[in-house]
Computed example of a mutant assay.
Amino acid sequence: MTRGISTRASGGCMRTRLQTLAVLATVAATAAGCAASQAFHNGGVAMRAGDLDQAVAYYRTAVQEAPDNANYKIALQRAMLAASRAHLDKAHEFEEKGQLEAARGEYQLASEYDPANRQAAAKVVSLDQTIRARLEAARPKPAIEQLRERVRAASAEPLLNPASREPLNLRFTNANIRDILNFISNASGINITYDRDLRDQPATVQLDGVTLEQALTQILATNALSYKVLSERSILVFPDTAQKHQTYDDQVVQTFYVSHADASELAQLLS
């Protein structure tokens, strides 16, 4: 008799526990549903207010609480795309103003919201490279590198920069070479100096639509002459001989850059 009563009591307790668990599950589901619904509502409010980042955060909460709700997923996707476009617009504005770090951050957010946007991802990489290059350029250069740049600047040969770059049309028959060159000088706005050993000699020239450099090269080469650029608007014309080239051609100087070297050791090497 006692055993039957115990069995019935045990079964009743089991049913009570199951009912309690069911109630708790129902309460939890209801609470989750309420949380998801509230987050979804807040997301809509944020969207209408233009706070797209906050809207994305709310919609993400709604989807996490109710992962099977298709409406929540669609709302989240739309918010992310809208936020991506907004950050792209901000990125363009910052980039136009030269604020590359800020632009890079906006492109990064745009890429995170819309991973399919390859343009945003590419911009992040490109701006990273540009920012690094700027930082490197702003960094003080070592003294040895500054020395190299000064030497290169000092040894650079001048280039002709005549007052006029109009194409030249030349028609001369048995004319004095100096007269031909003086005509070129007046037409282009350069000064010509003649070596004292340059002899007057007749020359025939028929050239149309040539540049200053082309005219000088062709005329002087066919008359055994050469020239050296002295400045942007000045040249020296001399006979094309080995002796004259030895006089006028720039000597080749080989420069050795040395840093962190012992002075006494250098003196021994150069002696």
Rank of each mutant, 00 (worst) to 15 (best):
Thr20Asn: 08
Leu266Met: 14
Arg104His: 03
Gln201Gly: 09
Asp250Ala: 09
Val45Leu: 14
Leu216Pro: 00
Ser10Ile: 15
Asn191Phe: 09
Leu220Pro: 01
Leu160Gln: 07
Ser231Ala: 06
Leu159Gly: 10
Ala62Val: 06
Glu232Asp: 11
Ala9Lys: 15
Lys73Val: 06
Gln246Ser: 08
Asp262Gln: 08
Gly105Gln: 04
Leu76Ser: 00
Leu269Phe: 12
Arg104Tyr: 02
Arg48Asn: 05
Ala163Val: 14
His260Tyr: 06
Ala242Gln: 13
Gln19Asp: 05
Tyr194Phe: 15
Ala242Gly: 05
Asp53Tyr: 08
Thr204Val: 08
Gln99Trp: 10
Met14Asn: 12
Ala46Pro: 03
Ser37Cys: 09
Asn182Pro: 04
Pro115Ile: 12
Gln54Glu: 14
Leu220Arg: 01
Arg171Ala: 12
Ala154His: 13
Asn186Pro: 03
Ala36His: 09
Leu160Lys: 06
Ser6Pro: 11
Leu160Val: 08
Tyr248Gly: 03
Val237Glu: 00
Gln246Glu: 11
Lys141Asn: 07
His260Glu: 12
Ala25Gln: 14
Thr26Ser: 14
Gln99Asn: 14
Arg165Lys: 13
Ala57Gly: 03
Gln119Ile: 13
Ala49Tyr: 09
Ala116Gln: 14
Thr211Gln: 03
Asn169Ile: 07
Ala36Pro: 01
Glu112Pro: 05
Gly44Gln: 02
Leu18Asp: 07
Ala49Val: 09
Leu88Gln: 02
Asp200Tyr: 06
Arg3Glu: 15
Asp68Gly: 13
Leu76Arg: 00
Asp200Lys: 10
Gly44Ala: 06
Val205Pro: 01
Leu135His: 08
Asp51Met: 09
Leu109Cys: 08
Arg17Tyr: 09
Ser84Phe: 01
Ile192Pro: 00
Thr255Lys: 08
Ile131Trp: 04
Tyr257Met: 08
Pro158Ser: 13
Thr16Val: 11
Phe183Thr: 00
Thr20Phe: 00
Thr247Tyr: 07
Asn117His: 11
Gly11Ile: 15
Asn182His: 14
Asp128Arg: 06
Asp128Asn: 13
Asp68Phe: 04
Gln108Trp: 02
Asp208Ile: 11
Phe40Val: 05
Gly105Lys: 02
Val229Asn: 04
Leu109Trp: 01
Ala263Asn: 05
Arg15Cys: 08
Lys228Trp: 02
Leu168Gly: 02
Leu236Trp: 02
Thr222Ala: 13
Pro202Thr: 15
Gln201Phe: 05
Ile131Ser: 05
Ala120Arg: 02
Ser126Val: 09
Ile184His: 00
Ala86His: 10
Pro239Cys: 04
Val27Ser: 13
Arg17Glu: 11
Val253His: 10
Phe238Thr: 01
Val45Tyr: 07
Tyr194Pro: 00
Ile131Leu: 12
Ala122Trp: 03
Asn161Cys: 07
Asp195Gly: 08
Ser226Leu: 04
Glu65Ala: 10
Ile184Asn: 00
Leu127Gly: 01
Ala122Arg: 14
Thr61Cys: 10
Asp53Arg: 12
Tyr194Glu: 04
Leu24Gly: 04
Asp114Asn: 14
Ile184Thr: 01
